[in-house]
Simulated assay, not measured.
Amino acid sequence: MDASSCLGSSLVDRLLQRGYTVHAALQNHCENQSPNNMLNNGNKKLKIFNSDPFDYQSIIEALKGCSGLFYTFEPPQDQSTYDEFMAEVEVRVAHNVLEACARTETIDKVVFTSSATAVIWKGTIGIDDPNNKSSLSDFDERDWTDITFCRKFKLWHAVSKTLAEKTAWALAMDREVNMVSINSGLLLSPDLSITNPYLKGAAEMYEDGVFVTVDLNFLLDAHICVFEDVSSYGRYLCFNHLINCSEDAVKLAQLLAPGSPQPPTGDQDMRMIQQRISNKKLNKLMVDFETGPRVE
């Protein structure tokens, strides 16, 4: 869930390649979208479900017989803009999904896709006081975004991801569900655009050395690695690139808005921003991870 997203559909493909039997739960964001048109590859190990994240029973149906769940949230088509109300939507969906997992006896592990925005935003970030850099500390998966701070600066993506992940963790611990989370950087997917809500506050993330991105293939490997590795636990910050110089920033800007003019070469800032975010925990886990089909 949600197999109709870029990450979700790619995960389905990768899991099938590794020999898994997959239940693909589609939310049908687009009108007239046929599940069979999205994932119709003729693979007998693929079963497709229409799953409404607000309909608890439809989640239960999709989970029947499954040993694990990869959960990722995409906003409903009629609520595609992140605002102060999106957190209520994400929290409700996260609660439904974790409760359904708790009631599905075959579920061994849940991989919950969250965001780096649930880690990096707090009062020490430059958006609050651009002149106060001395109080900045390094971030890892032990850090949590400050909800009050994010509401103040209308960072609604961070609010939603943080509250939804905290809801999932609370329920997982209460109901003894084995869960790990992937706190992903900005996904460099084919449908990435300047309107992506992750990008709110991008300039401040850049200046503070926490503007991280992740390639789709690396993100897929990370999800499967934490699922398959019995030693995985807790949260994992997931990224494989830091935007910390003007050249990187310009390349990303061109990707987001291909028609935008490039700044003159001589005008580029030559600084290298110090990295203040760590993904060592994930990198250590993935050292021995092998891509490709599983050996049965």
Rank of each mutant, 00 (worst) to 15 (best):
D2T: 15
A3F: 03
S4F: 01
L7A: 05
L11C: 09
L11G: 03
D13P: 00
D13L: 14
L16R: 11
G19W: 10
Q33M: 15
N36Q: 11
L39N: 00
N40H: 12
K45G: 09
K45R: 15
L46P: 01
L46V: 02
I48E: 04
F49K: 09
D55Q: 04
Q57Y: 07
S58K: 01
I59T: 08
L63Q: 04
G65M: 09
S67N: 15
L69M: 08
T72L: 11
P76H: 03
Q77I: 07
D78Q: 02
D78F: 04
Q79E: 06
T81F: 06
T81M: 13
Y82T: 01
D83K: 07
F85C: 04
M86Q: 14
A87F: 04
V91P: 00
N96V: 12
C101W: 02
A102Y: 06
A102F: 10
R103A: 10
R103F: 07
T104D: 11
T104W: 14
V110S: 15
S114D: 12
T117E: 14
T117G: 06
A118E: 10
A118M: 06
V119D: 02
V119H: 00
W121A: 03
I125V: 12
P130L: 00
N132K: 12
S134H: 12
S134F: 14
S137F: 14
D143T: 10
W144P: 00
T145G: 01
I147G: 00
T148G: 07
F149Q: 04
R151L: 08
K152A: 05
W156P: 01
W156Q: 02
H157T: 00
A158M: 12
A158T: 06
K161I: 13
A164T: 10
E165W: 12
T167F: 08
A172L: 13
A172K: 11
R175G: 07
V177W: 07
V180P: 07
S181V: 15
S184H: 11
G185D: 10
G185M: 10
L186N: 06
D191Y: 05
S193D: 13
I194T: 00
P197M: 08
K200Y: 05
K200N: 09
G201K: 03
A202Y: 10
M205T: 07
D208T: 04
G209D: 02
V210W: 01
V210L: 09
F211K: 02
N217D: 14
N217H: 09
F218P: 02
L220Q: 05
D221K: 11
D221Q: 09
F227Y: 12
E228H: 05
D229I: 00
V230A: 07
S232D: 00
R235H: 13
L237N: 10
C238N: 03
C238E: 01
F239Y: 14
N240A: 04
H241F: 03
N244Q: 15
V250E: 01
V250Q: 02
L252S: 04
A253V: 03
P258L: 05
S260V: 14
P263E: 11
G266Q: 12
D269P: 06
M270L: 13
Q274W: 05
Q274D: 10
R276Q: 15
N279V: 15
K284P: 06
F289D: 08
